[in-house]
Amino acid sequence: MLKHLDKIVDKGMLEEFKTFPNQGILWGIIEQQKTGKIFELPSNAILVMENCPDPFVFIAGDLTDEDVTEVVSLVGGLEFPMLYCQAKYHPLFLNHGWNFHLRSSLTLQKPIQIISPNPKLEIKPIKSIELFKQCTWYKERSELYGSDENFLRYGIGYALCKGSSVVSEAYASSGGGYAEIGVITSPDHRNKGYAALIVSHLINECEKSQIIPEWSCNVDNRASLSTGLKMGFEIDSYYTLLVPDCGNVVCKNLVNWLKNNDYPM
């Protein structure tokens, strides 16, 4: 059975979490628990998970097959859970039909400041319910924080407005001195440099607060990668998540290779 925790007291687990990707997202949950929950698994491993249909899921500690069964049950009804744990436990998830999901991690090297030449564009902090409800990611962010009120109180977001319309928006999931940046531009206003403009502003706000901006994306998300590189981020690593994906040939081949080479399953 999973046990809900109010906080993590095991210092070893906390140190292990510091080695994980997506530090802003992870520590935002650990420190505030406004955007996710913390659970203890049967073996005393710790699971941290976002409040959304496609959550990041982080697990620290030693895992057993019983733990994995509990995790699979926990995320079974979700749209696209993406799980990070020590690589030696990947075979336990592969045996449950899960597969690999690759992402790029980028570090900010030299921020690029972008100033809009268009006086009709205005950047506003998302701190009113009226502005929040105009945003493309209104539903997603409200669900992530548990309510509109929680987002307006604890969330970090900025909207790029053209007149009364929101054309692009950027958010930061912040914790542990890091901020994972996400950006979305209205489909009717893409390829106009709006994403770079709003991200540049958010990076500047992070630096004012001495928070380190982070950027990550799926390896095939060329639009996100291009925006990150344009803003002064550089790829520093790639990392593997696990996702529920039955029937994948690569996954089956890897499971067979692990078995045939006496890898612990």
Results as ranks from 00 to 15, higher is better:
12 G>L: 10
14 L>C: 04
16 E>L: 14
17 F>W: 05
17 F>A: 09
18 K>D: 14
20 F>M: 12
20 F>T: 04
20 F>A: 11
21 P>A: 02
22 N>K: 12
22 N>P: 00
22 N>G: 07
23 Q>F: 07
24 G>I: 03
24 G>Q: 03
26 L>G: 01
26 L>P: 00
27 W>A: 03
28 G>V: 02
28 G>L: 02
29 I>T: 01
30 I>C: 08
30 I>D: 00
31 E>C: 04
34 K>S: 06
34 K>Y: 08
35 T>Q: 11
35 T>K: 04
36 G>N: 02
36 G>L: 03
38 I>T: 05
39 F>L: 10
40 E>A: 14
40 E>Q: 15
41 L>S: 01
41 L>C: 02
41 L>Q: 02
42 P>E: 06
42 P>H: 08
42 P>L: 07
43 S>N: 08
44 N>D: 10
44 N>A: 13
44 N>S: 14
45 A>I: 00
46 I>L: 08
46 I>M: 08
47 L>Q: 07
49 M>Q: 12
51 N>S: 13
51 N>A: 09
51 N>C: 07
51 N>E: 08
52 C>T: 12
53 P>D: 10
54 D>C: 14
56 F>Y: 15
56 F>D: 01
56 F>W: 15
56 F>A: 07
58 F>N: 00
58 F>L: 05
60 A>W: 00
60 A>H: 03
60 A>L: 05
61 G>F: 03
61 G>Q: 05
61 G>R: 08
62 D>K: 15
62 D>N: 13
63 L>N: 06
63 L>C: 06
63 L>Y: 01
66 E>L: 09
67 D>Y: 03
69 T>R: 14
69 T>P: 03
70 E>R: 11
72 V>W: 05
73 S>A: 15
73 S>R: 15
73 S>P: 06
75 V>N: 06
76 G>S: 13
76 G>Q: 11
76 G>E: 15
76 G>C: 11
76 G>W: 11
76 G>R: 13
78 L>P: 01
78 L>W: 09
82 M>Q: 13
82 M>C: 12
83 L>I: 07
87 A>Q: 15
88 K>Q: 15
89 Y>S: 02
91 P>E: 06
92 L>D: 07
92 L>H: 04
92 L>N: 03
93 F>C: 07
93 F>A: 04
95 N>A: 13
95 N>R: 12
96 H>S: 13
96 H>F: 09
96 H>P: 06
